[in-house]
Design a protein around this nucleic acid. Sequence first.
DNA 1: GACACAACGTATCACCGATACCGAACGACT
DNA 2: AGTCGTTCGGTATCGGTGATACGTTGTGTC
Lengths: 231, 231
Amino acid sequence: MVTKTAVDTRERILEAAAALLVAEGRDGLSTRAVSAAAGVQPPALYRLFGDKDGLLDAVAAYGFDEYLTSKRELGSTGDAVEDLRRGWDLHVEFGLSRPEFYVLMYGDARPGRTSPAAREAEAMLRSIVERVAQAGRLRVSVERAARLVHATGMGVVLNLIATPEAERDAELSETARETVLSRILAGNEEPTGSDLPERAIALRAGLDGTAVLTDAERVLLAEWLDRIADA
Amino acid sequence: MVTKTAVDTRERILEAAAALLVAEGRDGLSTRAVSAAAGVQPPALYRLFGDKDGLLDAVAAYGFDEYLTSKRELGSTGDAVEDLRRGWDLHVEFGLSRPEFYVLMYGDARPGRTSPAAREAEAMLRSIVERVAQAGRLRVSVERAARLVHATGMGVVLNLIATPEAERDAELSETARETVLSRILAGNEEPTGSDLPERAIALRAGLDGTAVLTDAERVLLAEWLDRIADA
DNA sequence: GACACAACGTATCACCGATACCGAACGACT
DNA sequence: AGTCGTTCGGTATCGGTGATACGTTGTGTC
């Protein structure tokens, strides 16, 4: 048997804490229960994690990383937008399949504080968004796009977690995802056909102010738009 | 002096707890600190609120209701969509001006649980969304619209609260709001002129499927739309 | 082989949520 | 009117928690 290093102890504590979290919920994560389950004395936790909050942060990051590595087949698909969709879905899937860890990451909010695991997730998202921007498909700043996606995704997952499983809206995540994407991506969304009239109406409503078209063109355009709108 | 009823005691406890929450943060809300600040014995809390969680729920609802009554001038404007916007802004404003209460409402998430204050906010939102639907301006179900708005709004506020004040995106809320509204509302938003190119792009993207225009008309229309889009 | 230093384990502190139990005040019934 | 039952408020305390002081043991170094 090789020497038992500090990193081993740390890993063992995190494993025990994660198991305890799944088995007994968040309230079961007392320093005593964790130290007992890991076969360690309470002070060891404080030496390794400094604080109970430090321990919780570490447990959250541990669960998150563990999930990520278990899904490591998620590589880049070459299409940055598709990667963004996958990232969203992976995020939601993590939240729903390991709600205790997700809540640990995002749930106990305190003003001005972000858990390291949440920051990690945010950084991953940002790098994907940056690739979308480099592909020329972003229509807002990387900063804003990342924030919008992150905030919305978090809200959706927390909402789903808080909703009893039977009452959940199965399509909420997808709807929110496409809604946000339609806002941040350059306009290449698929034509649904059904909302074509709305687009025509919207365009027609703002037509008066433009100087791009001549009066005659505008009159004819308006007529066509009305036909599309009434179709 | 009139008789000191139980409801008075309850109110006094909630006031003291709310003050304590603002002054010392959430960790300061111990049963002992609250009971001492309210001039009451610890068991009284359990008689009135049953539980510490019950107390926290009551404090959250107290702070939320107090904020609502302080902003009671927010009546119906007659325009349901405008009311929805105001409701969103009021929600965000509450979260940012009283983050401790907001976090109490939404922050300590637990799987399958929703705080009464959050349910109250959700019910208010749903009634507004129902009025939007009655006005014929909703494009998805009331249920889905309400969930989408609520989840997104919550995500935005929690994100803002977690972000240090100096780094916050001042327009994040408005962007998210309009993004969600654009998804759930039927297309009759006011023309701002500046997003005319987007409308032209949107229309052009869906143009191929329509049989309302002749080929020649479509070619000319596409040309005009490109000019508008590039303006 | 002795020593300095770091890691470990015991014991304990102050505090927390929660409750059992007792006494007093109040109202109802005879 | 007097007794009694019931409900409410107060004392004291229980088990448990986060955190740490301090003695002890092991280890690497000179």
